[in-house]
């Protein structure tokens, strides 16, 4: 395991100016993410977990503090296409086939045709969608669409995968299956993953580290190192170890809420 730092945030703050006065979406957020980590961000809505991910992706600008991605600013990282971003909705274009959708970022980035075809078939294989290249999004289930959108984020060589509640809109069974697949994919590709969720079992099952956040102002209240092995069958969720980590996450979330009302 290397300890190369992929993301380094120091005293990061982001304040939105609204008509009702300033909203502190992030305050004094300090966190390092190392290469190969699977880091989950968990917390109630408004705790800034999505905002933090968006700052890493240069979709929001911090108003104070420092953040680097791969040692450079998020903007430079974005311009060098350092990360793949998976949104809550699959966001596939209905007028493009699954293959065409995965090819989209490759076209934009100027890969040649042969390389595009090779990469599309490789990532389709990775998310177990081989044979669906010529299908249109509406011919696929919601879970398959989300897998296609993950394939699209993997198609170019980004070592960092940022995922914003990618399975939030899917049902429990599909979600379990995708979680399992995501872990396998992470093991095989050794990517660094930042994963926003509001499901405690999901966070504990997937992560090497769980970052617990709390709202008003959005901040980190606890960082939990997972003691689970990297190999995780689904039934690991019934072990005492798993339950203990889940318990700690729940405690952390509750502590964050103690400031409320």
């Amino acid at each position: 395991m290397t300890t190369e730092t992929v993301i380094s945030a120091k005293n990061l703050g982001l304040t939105f100016q609204t008509n009702d006065g300033p909203v502190h979406a992030l305050k004094d957020v300090t966190l390092d993410i190392h290469k190969g980590d699977f880091v989950s961000f968990i917390g109630p809505s408004g705790c800034g977990k999505t905002t933090f991910l968006r700052v890493m992706a240069d979709l929001e600008k911090p108003t104070s503090g420092d953040i680097t991605v791969n040692g450079v600013s998020p903007e430079e990282a974005r311009k060098s296409r350092a990360y793949g971003y998976v949104f809550q909705a699959a966001g596939l274009y209905p007028w493009r086939t699954i293959g065409g959708n995965i090819r989209l970022p490759l076209e934009i980035m100027g890969y040649d045709k042969a390389e595009q075809a090779e990469r599309v078939s490789r990532v389709l294989d990775l998310v177990e969608l081989s044979g669906f290249e010529k299908k249109f999004p509406w011919q696929l289930s919601g879970g398959m669409q989300q897998r296609a959108s993950i394939a699209r984020a993997l198609a170019f060589d980004a070592d960092l995968l940022l995922m914003d509640e990618p399975f939030g809109a899917l049902d429990e069974i599909v979600r379990d299956h995708l979680n399992e697949q995501l872990l396998q994919l992470w093991k095989r590709t050794n990517k660094t993953i930042g994963f926003v969720t509001h499901s405690i079992p999901e966070a504990v099952y997937l992560s090497t580290r769980i970052v617990v956040m709390s709202p008003r102002p959005g901040r980190i209240t606890d960082v939990i190192e997972s003691t689970l092995p990297r190999d995780r069958p689904l039934d690991i969720r019934d072990t005492p170890e798993f339950l203990e980590i889940a318990h700690r996450v729940r405690e952390g979330l509750r502590a964050g809420h103690a400031y409320d009302e």
Binding site: K79, R81, Y83, Y85, F87, Q88, G91, I108, M109
Partner: peptide, 10 residues
């Protein structure tokens, strides 16, 4: 979301 997605691909 679609515009943000385009932005992530620069």
């Amino acid at each position: 979301m679609q515009l943000d997605q385009m932005r992530t691909w620069n």
